[in-house]
Simulated scan of single mutants.
Amino acid sequence: MDLRIFTEPQQGASYDDLLRVAKATEAAGYDAFFRSDHYLKMGGVDGLPGPTDAWITLAGLARETSRVRLGTLVTAATFRHPSVLAITVAQVDQMSGGRVEFGLGSGWYDDEHTTLGLDLPPFKERFDRYAEQLAIITGYWKTPAGEAFSFDGEHYKLVDAPALPKPVQQPAPPVIIGGSGKKRTPALAARYADEFNLPFADVETTAAQFARVAAAAEEIGRDPKEILRSSALVIAVGRDEAEIKRRADAIGRDVTELRQNGLAGTPAEVVDKIGRWREQTGITRLYLQLLDLSDLDQIDLVAAEVAPQLD
């Protein structure tokens, strides 16, 4: 079971805060450090000192870490033109020595788009654009060196793009797709995804969506086993009840609710819950959402007392 640390910097974090967490993640032996791609806080936090850009952050971390993999869960397709995004991600992959993983979603947060003056098309158009972005970005990366890439879609048109720079990882960095849509999302995952992620859902919902992705893969002649299954859950892990409660309080959550919907409890409880999730859904990767970025001790605790029991 791969364990990854997943952060939400829009809730309030500087680059230096994220660097500390990323270095702690790497030192503790986790597989990867991931962050969200948002520019506006959510809920009742002040969001200070303000937002940070996902790909600028990852570019910096690429030069200040050496082993841990880096990525987004997930980049919003509404924020960047796909050809520019393909160049950006390829460059960060080069800067990291081939450690980037690319999560892409259609975009969803209405207030964020309104506040910043970003277009958020109606859902059907947004999803159509998202599908074209996946085709452009993966096509751009996979075009052989020395050849041009063109694309003629309803929303995007590229003419003889040089398809440079190339990412270190060939033919492309791993692509992560997620979401709960029952038709188009599984179909896109079957075509483009190396990993399918369903965050913050219960076991039954997660298992059902993985089954849809598997069926969509089989329909186009792809082996469903080629698509890694992952989930994401909020963590509040403590050595005793007092520590568990302190960690839940720090992120404004109730311990009982987190035990039900997240990963809250002692290391033994968490190991048991992850084991049940693995048996019922087939996940082999779990993103641990760390909402209190000052709590480096929790990173070390999970690495020392949970991870070794999941091999």
Rank of each mutant, 00 (worst) to 15 (best):
residue 201 A to L: 07
residue 207 A to E: 04
residue 216 A to M: 12
residue 85 L to H: 07
residue 93 D to R: 06
residue 202 D to Q: 09
residue 12 G to H: 06
residue 57 T to H: 11
residue 67 R to P: 00
residue 42 M to V: 12
residue 1 M to I: 12
residue 38 H to E: 04
residue 59 A to W: 04
residue 66 S to L: 01
residue 230 S to V: 12
residue 74 V to W: 00
residue 48 L to C: 01
residue 155 H to D: 08
residue 43 G to N: 06
residue 68 V to K: 05
residue 73 L to P: 00
residue 128 D to P: 01
residue 229 R to K: 15
residue 67 R to E: 14
residue 8 E to I: 07
residue 180 S to P: 00
residue 155 H to W: 14
residue 7 T to I: 12
residue 21 V to T: 03
residue 230 S to I: 09
residue 70 L to G: 09
residue 156 Y to W: 15
residue 162 P to D: 14
residue 168 V to I: 15
residue 290 L to Y: 01
residue 121 P to H: 11
residue 92 V to K: 01
residue 198 L to S: 06
residue 171 P to D: 09
residue 80 R to W: 13
residue 262 G to R: 05
residue 233 L to Q: 07
residue 228 L to F: 03
residue 143 T to K: 11
residue 264 A to S: 13
residue 75 T to G: 02
residue 192 Y to H: 14
residue 189 A to K: 07
residue 88 T to V: 15
residue 261 N to M: 05
residue 42 M to G: 10
residue 305 E to I: 03
residue 110 D to F: 13
residue 64 E to N: 06
residue 217 A to Y: 01
residue 128 D to S: 15
residue 90 A to F: 00
residue 222 R to S: 14
residue 34 F to Y: 12
residue 48 L to V: 10
residue 47 G to L: 09
residue 286 L to W: 00
residue 42 M to D: 02
residue 115 T to S: 14
